[in-house]
Design a protein around this nucleic acid. Structure first.
Length: 376
RNA sequence: GCGGAGAUGCCAGAGAGGCUAAUCGGGCCAGACUGUAAAUCUGGUGCGCCGUGAGGCGCUUCGGGGGUUCAAAUCCCUCUCUCCGCA
C-alpha cells in the first residue's frame, strides 16, 4: 500500500505550470512548493512550531550530515527523524550525493564505482557511502521522500567527463532502486508505511546527456524525478535550457523536484517548466546574513536602518514584521544576537511561502503570466 | 602642587630614525552565496593624477609650534590637553 500519491489539480494553459498535491503519510504538500533546507534536522534557528507558522510544508534533511552526527543509529533509536526533532509534517531526505560536489572541491571525497569515500568535515575520518547504504540510511531515518544517491557533476566539465559522471549516476540509480525495493519489503513486513524515492537526473549542460538521463531515470519506476547537477556554477540561462530539454521527457503524472534552486527570480522559470517542488538554502542563508526578502531585498545590517521605525516589509504579516522595527532587527544583527537570525529566517521563509501561495493561486486562476510581469 | 604615564587615521590600538600612507581588530562601504563544512567568505576604506594591467607619481597625514638629520609618527625644545599615584 503506497502512502504516497501525487495528483495534478490544475494546469496553466499558457505554460507547463501545474498545481497539485503530494500526499504523504505525514500530510499533504500543495505544489508547486518551496522546500527549505534543514540539513542537520533543523531549519537553522527555527522550532518546528515556527516552521509551521511560517508555512513550511516539507523540508530537506541531509543523510551525509545525519550519518556523521548524530549517526543514523541515534536517529533510529530516537524513533526516526520526525520524533527525533519533533516535526510531524513531511520530510524529504537527500542522499549525500551533493556532498560529492560541495566537499569534492576541497578534496574531501573520492569517487569509486562502489560509491564515494568521504572524509568527515568534522574530524577527517574516512567513510564509504554507496547507493545501497544511502538508501538504507534514509530508510532507517524514516523520511517521507528519499533521493537516489547520485554523482553530482560539477561545472564546468567536458562532455566526456559529464557523460562518465552521468553513466555512473545511472548505474547507481539502478542500485538505489533495487535497494529501495528491499527497504519497502521490510516496511511491509514491519508494518511500516511506504517511503517514496525520487531518481536523480544528471548530464551537466549537454543536451544529449540531459535527454538521455531524463529517459533513463524515467524508466526506473521511481515515485518522482529529481533534476540534479544544476546550480553548480552554470548560468541561469543554461539552467533553464536544461529544463527545456528534460521536462518534456518526464512522465506527466510523477512529481518533479529540482535540486538546489530557489532564488526569487528563478522560481517563475521553474514553475513555468512544470517543476513541482524545489529546495534551496538561499532564503535561510540570506536571512542569516541580514538579507531580507521583499519586493526589494534589503540588507538590514546597513547603517541606514539603525533608526528606522518601519517594519522590514510594510505589508508583510509575519511575526517579525508585525512585532519589530527595522532598527531593532538591525541592532540584533549588529550585536550578533541569536534572535537576529531567527527573526530574519522567519521573515524570509514567511515571505517565500506567501509568494508560493500566490503562485499556486495564479496558476489555478490562469494569471501566472500576469503575476510574473508584476514581479519581473 | 609634586611625581609618573600619555596624546597615532571614524573608533580602538601597534609602531620608537629610512622597509610606514602607517600592523591587527572594530566600524563603515561594496561584492559573493542556489540538493548548507556558511550566525560564512572576499575586497575596499587620506586626497589627486598616470597606466588596460602588475604598478607608478605627486600632495597632505601620527595633539599645536619650533628644531636636529640626507631622512622624523619615531630624537630634542616648548606649548596645550588627558590619565594615574601622592598630597
Amino acid at each position: 500500500m503506497r502512502s504516497f500519491r501525487f495528483r495534478i489539480l490544475e494546469k496553466d494553459k499558457k505554460t507547463k505550470a501545474r498545481v497539485g498535491e503530494i500526499a504523504t503519510r505525514h500530510g499533504v504538500i500543495k505544489t508547486p512548493a518551496f522546500v527549505p533546507v534543514g540539513t542537520q534536522a533543523s531549519i537553522k534557528s527555527l522550532t518546528p512550531d515556527e516552521m509551521k507558522e511560517v508555512g513550511v510544508q516539507l523540508f530537506f534533511v541531509n543523510t551525509y550530515h545525519m550519518y556523521l552526527r548524530p549517526g543514523i543509529e541515534v536517529v533510529e533509536k530516537l524513533g526516526g527523524l520526525h520524533k527525533f526533532m519533533g516535526w510531524d509534517g513531511p520530510i524529504m531526505t537527500d542522499s549525500g550525493g551533493f556532498q560529492v560536489f560541495s566537499l569534492g572541491r576541497s578534496d574531501l571525497t573520492k569517487i569509486i564505482e562502489e560509491g564515494v569515500e568521504f572524509r568527515s568535515h568534522w574530524d577527517g575520518t574516512k567513510h564509504l557511502f554507496t547507493p545501497e547504504s544511502s538508501m538504507e540510511w534514509q530508510w532507517r531515518m524514516g523520511g517521507d521522500i528519499h533521493i537516489a544517491f547520485d554523482d553530482c557533476t560539477g561545472y564546468p566539465v567536458t562532455h566526456a567527463v559529464a557523460k562518465k559522471s552521468m553513466e555512473r549516476t545511472h548505474r547507481w540509480a539502478s542500485r538505489c532502486k533495487a535497494a529501495n525495493v528491499k527497504c519497502q519489503m521490510s516496511n511491509v513486513k514491519m508494518g511500516r508505511p511506504y517511503q517514496a524515492l525520487y531518481g536523480s537526473i544528471q548530464g551537466s549542460v549537454y543536451e544529449d546527456l540531459r535527454k538521455e538521463s531524463a529517459k533513463y531515470i524515467s524508466t526506473l519506476d521511481f515515485d518522482g524525478i529529481a533534476i540534479g547537477g544544476v546550480s553548480v556554477g552554470e548560468t541561469k540561462k543554461e539552467m533553464v535550457k536544461v529544463l527545456d530539454w528534460v521536462v518534456p521527457i518526464l512522465p506527466e503524472e510523477k512529481p518533479r523536484h529540482l535540486l538546489g534552486v530557489g532564488e526569487i527570480d528563478d522560481i517563475f522559470a521553474l514553475v513555468e517548466h512544470g517543476i513541482d517542488t524545489f529546495d534551496c538554502v538561499m532564503p535561510t542563508r540570506l536571512a542569516r546574513m541580514g538579507k531580507l526578502l521583499g519586493n526589494k531585498e534589503i540588507d538590514i545590517t546597513k547603517k541606514i536602518f539603525a533608526e528606522d521605525k518601519k517594519p522590514i516589509h510594510p505589508l508583510c504579516r509575519c511575526y517579525t514584521c508585525t512585532h519589530f522595527s527595522r532598527a531593532y532587527v538591525h541592532h540584533l544583527f549588529h550585536v550578533k544576537e541569536l534572535l537576529a537570525y531567527r527573526l530574519a529566517t522567519i521573515h524570509n521563509l514567511w515571505f517565500i511561502h506567501r509568494f508560493m501561495d500566490d503562485i499556486r493561486q495564479s496558476i489555478a486562476r490562469g494569471t501566472l503570466v500576469a503575476l510574473k510581469k508584476k514581479w519581473i
